[in-house]
């Protein structure tokens, strides 16, 4: 028996292979089978499970995604002191190697679980599931998941979180949303980080960055932030408070392109087109 791919004949499909069923005998032993199965079904199944678990404990989970070095950990380091009097937090850190980011968070007295992915370029729902077991969800309101620095792969994996935040530092160029459309299309919020440098970086146009996001049919707010200036963090903190208020009101929050409500469920059963 194989647990990985579930190779069992179930009561639901036994009639297909029973004597007289469509698969009992074929003239040449061949069949074409129409399937409608999401290739990420296993991940999405686990993601749904994670989301249910988080919601049972009333935790809002925010997935931070960006290229390496755009300031995800710095944003958290600036956010934690600003909201810790009203929100209890934990952080899941994803990196290929090192515990450095988790240590930076723990220094602030916030529980942090480091996932070292080895060669994997993204977090997936299974990794996050394991990490959730190491967090006391009952004692927190807000969970940040800092994804692996990468503008490509993390966009394809639902983790079971509620909101996607994409960071784009102003040193990277305002056309990043056009270059990495899958990532920026899925963002619920786009933060233009290191915005205190805008005065010296003359080729980054915030309006152009926003226009590129709109060209992805994405209405997400696009806001400049800086961890060095309290006045340039207000918009982000206000957004976070709004989302927390929505959670407390019990509003359903889903990342923009989660397949949660999609038609292609894990439990899809193939049917036979012709034999």
């Amino acid at each position: 028996m194989c647990d990985t791919c579930g190779c069992t004949i179930t009561p639901g499909n036994a009639h297909l292979v029973a004597a007289g069923g469509p698969h009992a005998h074929t003239t040449d032993g061949r069949a074409t089978v129409d399937v409608l199965a999401n290739l990420l079904a296993e991940n999405d199944h686990m993601a749904r499970h994670n989301r249910q678990k988080l919601e049972r404990h009333g935790v809002l989970a925010v997935n931070l995604m960006s290229s390496p070095g755009s300031g995800k950990t710095s944003l958290l380091e600036a956010t934690i002191p600003a909201v810790r009097d009203r929100l209890a937090m934990a952080v899941i850190e994803g990196d290929l190697a090192t515990q450095n980011d988790a240590e930076r968070i723990r220094r602030l007295g916030i529980p942090a679980v480091q996932i070292t992915t080895g060669q994997a370029c993204h977090l997936d729902a299974h990794m996050v599931h394991d990490a959730l077991h190491r967090i006391d969800l009952e004692s927190i309101d807000l969970l940040f998941i800092e994804n692996v620095g990468n503008l490509v792969c993390p966009a394809s994996f639902d983790l079971g979180h509620h909101l996607n935040v994409a960071l784009l530092s102003v040193t990277e160029g305002d056309d990043k949303p056009a270059k990495y459309p899958v990532m920026f299309r899925g963002a619920d919020l786009v933060l233009l980080t290191k915005a205190d440098l805008l005065g010296v970086i003359d080729d980054f146009d915030t309006a152009r960055a926003e226009a590129h996001v709109r060209s992805l049919a994405n209405p997400a707010p696009v806001m400049p932030v800086s961890t060095r200036r309290a006045d340039m963090l207000r918009g982000w903190l206000a957004w976070l408070d709004e989302r927390m208020a929505a959670r407390q009101m019990g509003l359903v929050q889903r990342p923009r392109i989660a397949r949660d409500s999609g038609a292609l469920a894990h439990e899809t059963l193939a049917h036979v087109a012709h034999v």
């Binding site: 698969h23 074929t26 040449d28 032993g29 061949r30 069949a31 074409t32 089978v33 129409d34 399937v35 409608l36 199965a37 999401n38 290739l39 292609l264 193939a270 087109a273």
Partner: peptide, 10 residues
Amino acid sequence: ILSRLELSEI
């Protein structure tokens, strides 16, 4: 999506 499979040795 996985849309179709051709199977043999059934």
